[in-house]
C-alpha cells in the first residue's frame, strides 16, 4: 500500500511542476512522469493490460509534445509572476469551496466499500464463470469482447468518429 501513496505524492508534485514551470519541455517531461507513475500503479494493483496501453500511449504523447515544442518556442509566456491584486478573490474562493467539498466528500464517501473489496456481484460472476463461458484465459478480453462486446463496439465507433473529426478539421479543400 505504502508504495501507492508514495507514487501519488510523486504524481502530485510532478503535476504541480508541469503547471508552474516556465520551460515547456520540462513541463512535458513532468507530465510524462505522471503518466508513467499511473502505469506503475496499474502494475501494482495487478492490471497489466491497462499498464501496457498506458505506457505506449504515454510514450507517444510525450514524443508528440516534445516534437511540437522543439519546433516552436521553448518558454511559456503566459505564466504570471506572483499573485496580482485582482487574483486574491479567486484564491480565497478556491480555498473556501475546496474545504467545503472536502468535508462533504468525507461524509459522502464514508459508505463506499474498502479498497479491493467490490460490492458488485457481476464482477464475481465474471471471475468465477468467465473461463467456462467464453474459453478465454485473459479475463479482460473475455469481458470487453464477450460480456461487454456492445460497449467495445461503441468504443470503436467513437474512434472512427474522432478520426473523421480530425480529418474534417484539417481539410484544405472546401474550406471558405
Amino acid at each position: 500500500m505504502i508504495e501507492i501513496y508514495l507514487l501519488v505524492i510523486a504524481m502530485l508534485a510532478a503535476a504541480i511542476v508541469a503547471i508552474e514551470i516556465k520551460d515547456l519541455l520540462a513541463s512535458a517531461v513532468s507530465m510524462g512522469i505522471v503518466g508513467f507513475s499511473v502505469a506503475i500503479m496499474f502494475i501494482l494493483v495487478q492490471a497489466p493490460d491497462l499498464a501496457i496501453v498506458q505506457i505506449v500511449v504515454e510514450i507517444l504523447t510525450v514524443v508528440f509534445f516534445a516534437a511540437t515544442i522543439l519546433r516552436t518556442t521553448h518558454t511559456d509566456t503566459t505564466i504570471q509572476k506572483g499573485i496580482q491584486r485582482e487574483g486574491i478573490f479567486p484564491v480565497i474562493a478556491f480555498f473556501i469551496f475546496g474545504t467545503l467539498v472536502t468535508v462533504l466528500a468525507i461524509y459522502a464517501l464514508k459508505d463506499l466499500p474498502r479498497f479491493g473489496m467490490p460490492i458488485m456481484k457481476v464482477a464475481e460472476h465474471y471471475i468465477v464463470h468467465g473461463l467456462n463461458q467464453t474459453g478465454a484465459t485473459n479475463i479482460v478480453a473475455a469481458i470487453i469482447l464477450d460480456y461487454r462486446g456492445y460497449d467495445t463496439f461503441g468504443e470503436a465507433v467513437v474512434l472512427f468518429t474522432s478520426v473523421l473529426g480530425v480529418l474534417t478539421i484539417l481539410r484544405v479543400k472546401g474550406r471558405k
Binding site: D49, V53, I59, L60, L145
Partner: peptide, 21 residues
C-alpha cells in the same frame, strides 16, 4: 500482443497502438 489477447495481458487496443507506434 493482438494474437495472444485472449490468453495473456493485452489485446486489440494495446497491440493496435504498438503497431501504430
Amino acid at each position: 500482443i493482438i494474437l495472444h489477447g485472449h490468453l495473456t495481458p493485452g489485446g486489440g487496443f494495446a497491440g493496435g497502438v504498438i503497431i501504430a507506434a
